[in-house]
Nucleic acid binder design. Sequence first.
RNA 1: GCGAGAUUAACUCAGAGGUAGAGUACUUCCUUGACGUGGAAGGAGUCGCGGGUUCGAAUCCCCCAUCUCGCACCA
Length: 880
Amino acid sequence: MQSKYNPKEFEDRIYAKWLEKKSFSATVNPLKKPYTIVLPPPNITGQLHMGHALDQTLQDILIRWKRMQGFEALWLPGTDHASIATEVRVLKSIEEKEGLTKEQLGRDTFLERAWAWRDDYGRIIVNQMQKLGSSCDWEKERFTMDEGCNKAVTEVFVRLYNKGLIYRGNRLINWCPDCKTTLSDAEVEHEEKPGHFWHIKYPIVGTNDFLEIATTRPETMVADSGVAVNPNDERYKHLIGKNCLLPLMNREIPIIADDYVEMDFGTGALKVTPAHDPNDFEIGLRHGLDPINGMNEDATMNEVAGKYEGMSRFECRKAIVKDLEAEGYLVMVKEHPHNVGACYRCNTVIEPRVSDQWFVQMGPLAQPAIDVVNEDKLHIIPDRFTKVYMNWLENIRDWCISRQLWWGHRIPAFYCQSCPEIVVATEMPDVCPSCGGIHFKQDEDVLDTWFSSALWPFSTLGWPDQTPELDYFYPTSVLVTGYDIIFFWVVRMVFSALNEMQEVPFKDVFIHGLVRDANGKKMSKSLGNGVDPLDIIDQFGADALRFMLATGNSPGNDLKFQIERVESSRNFANKLWNASRFVIMGIEGTIEPFDGSEALTLADEWILSRLQTVTNEITQSLDKYELGLAASKIYEFTWNEYCDWYIELAKKRLYSEDEVAKKTVQKVLVKVLKDILKLLHPFMPFITEEIWQFMPNPESLLVTESWPVSENTLKNEDSEKKMQVIMDAIRSLRNVRAEMDVVPSRKAKCMIWPIDATIGGVLMDQAEYLITLASCSEVILINDKSQIPEDAVSAVIHGAELYLPLDDLIDFDKEMERLQKEKSKLEKEVERVNQKLNNPGFVSKAPASVLEEEKQKASKYDEMLATVTARIDAIQLKIS
RNA sequence: GCGAGAUUAACUCAGAGGUAGAGUACUUCCUUGACGUGGAAGGAGUCGCGGGUUCGAAUCCCCCAUCUCGCACCA
């Protein structure tokens, strides 16, 4: 074992060993229970970021823990084709390097390039995950566009179509003018932006009167189909049925009445532009107003706009406002902040657009997804996200799934070239069922990426084929993902699975937050504030990064990335490294494993008992997905109990000549350390595995060792209590010495005046610990009060008074000051406890155990206060 | 507008109906044979405000304030 903790030296080597031994491979095994996690597939658009590191660390902790618990643990990895993002990125890189546009490239060449891109980035991602220590079964790695997934996607599409749940419709959809594709509602991000309210006069045909409308988007007036007012609006009732003359366009449009219009908002008159606004589209449908499309695909104005043709929508807005003003149609302009929808990939303002698209009818699919939560078949952790999930499903609208892209699953719809028939099938049909034609053209569009992601939990296990893996590993145990994709992904997996598998895709959903930078800002490429996990791993090791990500934050909350916390985790790893080195160096030859027959000292009994408690607590925390709590428990036990106390207490025996004592302490040191390594392994897999290789346990790998179970025979409350006395005494003595400025090198005699004989006995039995850990030269029990030295400082603990005669070193003023401070502390405690005990309500209503506890405290503090007070009096007497 | 979260030590955050915790930072001391990426001792908080429930509230309930997020077709 190397003397310095250097994660770079072993992390890659350890990972290679796991791979070589196939430690992560899971197979159908009827003798074991399965535990399955499917990895949320990272996009192949680029490298992994800190968010992936968090997501994967949590999953790896769970899967490693369950693997050790004896489950057949499968963590199935893969990557996502990320339709829009990848297409945009690949095209951009080609355009930069070769100056070719999408059209120049052509569909087939483009797809070749995209697949090559996929191969490159798929490799990079796998590499990064391995650096992090992710224990995936790589032989089962999948890709959302591989053959099997493609088959599943086509199959689901056809089935949903046959059930009438997928339809083609001419609807108003979200259009990204930059990506030049439709988007689902979930892919549009709304942001309130400052805007204006333009009030415009629309003249009434055949009169000198006019109607004043208000709009935030004057450029869309070129495509107005009408003006709507509320049927009950007395101001406008007489105008219903008449026509307006659309200013600048000189086109007549009808004035209609619709309840949707609110009388007290704006002017109470609404221009209706069905092709460019979702509400107007609905109004148009109700009143037979045809949508007029005023824009091209790139959101420039088209021929409908007349003289404005060719302008961008924003240029056109300015031009129209200017012309309206010039011709006297503009009444006023008001500041008016309003919501603007933008593409979640490129942030371009969305333009509603009427077109033929494919939709999934959501109503029938949503209800079962709501039911499984109500029926407790699906748990969302933390619970508060259940509400988010439910709200979304309860208000869901049909899902537009066609995308005008090339990179993705092509829609399995085939258009007969001889008649209007559309055949939806897994393969291109031979003959048209309605006209007998034999020429078909497949739909040009591809599916929303999330359509394939929605099938991930079962498509990766072989569906639609009934494979043994699907039978055994499905439904999966837990899905671990961020709250930002509950709508995109979690919901859609649930309803897709319920529809195809008649079973939930996972029993638990464990939601985590986002990783933010040190200032709380979202990490992003554009801000340049991202931290590359690989850099951190390079600098501090993967274990330190993982431990940092797993601790210091509770489930579902965002996590600020602070380098100090990585450092602190690295320091912990270093501490463990050195403690282990100490233990290994202390072992001579081979030792037998601990078997419970050894003659144990108090310290042994104490640490073994504590280990059982901690083992229990950690397991319970993990059961509840409280990974951070579990991690801090093992941290505290390792550092504050095993290292700070047990190792120190063990040293004397370890260096002694007593061979039996030596063997015993070695066995206990090893036994506890081995369990620490096991308990810590899910969090810090590399260092624990590396150390494990130096433990007396040839041939085995820690990764497949069994998880510790609390052993009742090793629980020992009496020893824990006694040890508490020893630790209190040592801490007290150290405190006194520090306050009196006594350097550790100056040893002092320790005289014990027992108030409680049992405690005096415990202290005398363990006198050697006071000697080594509290710099005592010797420990003497006083049984006659006259033996209490005059010139000494004192330390008061419950049940005993400890004196350190320090002769010349004693500054009585200082000692008085110290004792007074302690006295006032004790007085406060006594007061607090007495207040409780004098409260009749407390005495009669508090549980017996709490009451008893308080009574014990009362006597303890009373006793200590009396001792301190007596000591003060004695010194006072001496000074005067 | 609806909903959620946050508000605890100088900073970053855990926790949780029964005497306030960690990491970092800070003060003092320590080259003790695993570790200075260390050890010992210490200082530091009316647990956002105000009510309520309770023997007991930082913790449960209500109100308010501030800061974040989601969701929402008022042009």
